[in-house]
Design a protein around this nucleic acid. Structure first.
Lengths: 236, 236
DNA sequence: GTCTAAAACTGATCTAAATCATATTGCCGC
DNA sequence: GCGGCAATATGATTTAGATCAGTTTTAGAC
């Protein structure tokens, strides 16, 4: 976590894609005055589950996993986040501690905007409040879908579904198919859908054998999307 | 679903406990002009998953379960709601169809406030927008906790956890212990935590045998809360 | 009251996936 | 280069909980 020169929000590349896109000069200026930017190396922790929330994090570069630990200390990944996404705003809004641990999946540049600066802008900007509401609503639906999926689908169905979700978020069209531009470990994939590392490995090599996907190390390419959709019980 | 005389929001008993408590006369007056009230019998559907959202529902009396159907048509209960709670506001905010089906667990009186009336009040009232944000944040945390629980805990642990949650929401202190003032079927309890009806029955009779709970029909009384907390892996 | 249907209960069997145990492979530091 | 460690891979075994099958109890309609 090393300090570097702090960039300004007005020219931040990620601004267009995030919730701050509708903010105006004075509000962005306030953020500039009340933020710090840090670089996090792969594997470093941005904040811990249970800690008091001191600010909202805005990801400029790199991707992050959010997870909470189960009763035996086994991680459950609840969300992935990347450039333009905000982290920790829920805890500020509901005045609770952080509800998950955020860890860098890659080297990241992340700004932290002070609690009060963020809240006062949110309070004064109806448009941003509505954007937050919409974002939260979507995340809630996704979380409920995940719970339903884990409760009702088989490990195989969930793995197929995960690959489809990863393709939707990080897929890049290629000659062979859609290559997934995020290199998770088999264990992390398991932690997203509630299966063990061994089962995740077996399912991936099974899909590979069936030519649904191509796997080279952690680089996964989807070759047969309809087959995966079918395996995920998303299409009949 | 039978019409009856429409009550006015200003004197609604449930108002103090819900998100509308900070609204003022003109806003409540707008709700009065743009709402209908209906009575739903036990088992009747208030709205269906996937349908276009036409308004927000405010529960005056009775309790409701919200569920979505899994790939084999098996229901997963994602939330319970009662007097003072709002239903369907998320879909209005995110401009999506209803994300779940709402069904009356008991006879209910429920008001439906028109889409536009609700949205225009929400847009003009910063305080209510913040209350909504806080509520959504909490629901999101709960949904993520449920997913983690289903992914990582055993059926027994989840059943114990469910009883504790029901006690927190609907428990009434009695001489014997805490009686749960909501009479779910074994099947519904299973649908909340992702287990079959048979497993739910076996676990309840197991807890009963261990004297953790007392069961009379659908009336459950918690006799030994520490033992349940321990069984839920919430306390060591 | 009887009749019927749904809910609750119990036992036997089956199976998906966890767990346990080992290789094998690839990668980073030196 | 080599050594060590983590990730990947694969096989054998176990088990929690689903599924299947049946009985008993309760609740509601008439």
């Amino acid at each position: 976590m090393s300090k570097r020169q702090t960039p300004i929000c007005e020219t931040c590349e990620s601004r267009d894609t995030n919730l701050f896109c509708s903010l105006h000069a004075p509000e962005l200026e306030s953020f500039n005055r009340h933020k710090t930017q840090n670089r996090y190396r792969k594997g470093q922790i941005i904040f811990y589950d249970g800690n008091q929330a001191f600010g909202v994090f805005c990801i400029q570069r790199g991707r992050v996993k959010l997870y909470k630990l189960g009763p035996q200390g086994h991680p459950q990944i609840v969300r992935l986040a990347g450039p333009g996404n905000l982290l920790g705003y829920r805890s500020l809004l509901s005045n609770e501690p952080y509800h998950a641990t955020a860890e860098a999946l890659e080297d990241c540049d992340i700004c932290c905007i002070d609690r009060e600066a963020f809240l006062s802008v949110a309070r004064g900007n109806q448009d941003m409040a509505f954007k937050l509401l919409r974002k939260l609503s979507q995340e809630l639906r996704q979380a409920e879908d995940l719970a339903t999926s884990i409760a009702q689908k088989s490990a195989r169905e969930r793995m197929a579904e995960l690959l489809i979700h990863l393709k939707e978020a990080y897929g890049r069209q290629e000659s062979l198919g859609f290559s997934i531009d995020l290199h998770l470990s088999r264990e992390e994939m398991g932690e997203m859908i509630g299966i063990t590392q061994e089962t995740a490995i077996r399912l991936l090599s099974d899909f590979k054998k069936s030519k649904f996907i191509h796997v080279n190390e952690r680089q996964i390419t989807i070759l047969n999307l309809p087959a995966l959709l079918h395996a995920a019980a998303l299409e009949v």
